[in-house]
Write a protein that binds this DNA or RNA. Structure first.
Lengths: 190, 190
DNA sequence: ATAATTATTTGACATATGTCAAACGGCGAC
DNA sequence: GTCGCCGTTTGACATATGTCAAATAATTAT
């Protein structure tokens, strides 16, 4: 999962003026460093934490027929969690792997639930995040449905120019739904 | 947009025991009949209503290079609205067309907002619907990313066996991200 | 019922992408 | 520095899907 929305950032910035809220949040949250290769969550486990990326990069993937299929990339200020697993308490369909040394703010879903109950602004932020995430997914779906592989690659690089430096091509190809070789050829042609 | 979740249905059933809530809802809602071919919402308009399908079928689509691209189908008990347009008050990226004579419950987004403020259960239902919708989109994305056209068609028919009778193949093909001819051949092979 | 329109199927061929194999290149371990 | 590993590129060929055109089949209007 991931979100990025100016309105949400503003809401949070304003909310954090409140000392009681700030204290409650920082009591629940915990900063942690992860190293390249670490797994934040493994396929099959239940997602009990929310990871806010303060710096670094993470990729979501699952295994299909013995192959890794990359479902998402998360960068600074994105939130890493399996929505399905966290909300339904079912085994996560995907794993999340740290792609480069990362600084992360960890909040347990349980504590997050209590924060949402106690401070309506957190509930509001959660709802707005869901809306933003769903809209983002709709866009990605449309792109996957009717853009060519080259168009999808160009869109991705336009949105995340750094991605080519941070992530190896095989993962990008998988994310785009094409093979490594096809991506390599797309890049060669320019 | 669409949702379908047992938990949400149960929540609503329970909530409607409350007479005050029931009255408030039915004051806001309005039953309407639409005919095949009617547009519930047109691309470019702002989505100011939510349409709950009591019976019938609706398809979402947008124009790309002069061609219609089908983005979604909605059937009984699905909710029809453009999430992006309704939440951000921006022009809708898609139109919604009635595929067969339909009975619909219409609620203006404004009145819905007031219901959400007044009755927390509506707010809860909205949030749960967003979660369910996002999870549904994630699944559809994975399917589009890594299933063959035939697998996607089989999944669709398994989930909505009626669809082949209700919706013409060109729309189904578009929804699957393939051409009409390819779908026709997939069906022929069995 | 008949004609007109629209939806679907089929065929021939073009294009995009996948698969397998080999070669190339950078980078760290020693 | 050299070796070996890993990621990437390139080539040859296979397969899936798209495009255009024509033929049927189904639906609608008259």
């Amino acid at each position: 999962m991931k979100y990025q929305e100016a309105i949400i950032e503003d809401l949070l910035t304003a909310a954090f003026q409140d000392e009681a809220l700030r204290d409650a949040y920082y009591e629940a949250a915990q900063e942690k460093r992860f190293k390249k290769g670490d797994l934040l969550l493994e396929q099959g486990q239940i997602c009990r934490h929310s990871y806010i990326l303060l710096s670094g990069a993470v990729r979501g993937f699952y295994l299909k027929d013995g192959r890794e299929v990359t479902t998402s990339f998360c960068f600074t200020s994105d939130v890493v969690l399996s929505l399905e697993s966290a909300t339904r308490l079912t085994p996560s369909p995907e794993s999340f792997e740290v792609l480069e040394d990362s600084l992360v703010e960890v909040v347990s879903m349980e504590k997050m639930a209590r924060l949402r109950e106690r401070f309506p602004v957190f509930e509001k932020v959660w709802t707005l995040s869901m809306e933003a995430y769903a809209i983002w997914l709709e866009e990605r779906l449309a792109s996957l449905q009717f853009a060519t592989a080259k168009e999808r690659y160009d869109q991705l690089v336009e949105r995340y120019p750094e991605i080519v430096r941070q992530v190896q091509l095989s993962h990008i190809a998988s994310y785009l739904g094409i093979t490594l070789e096809t991506l390599s050829r797309i890049r060669a042609k320019g």
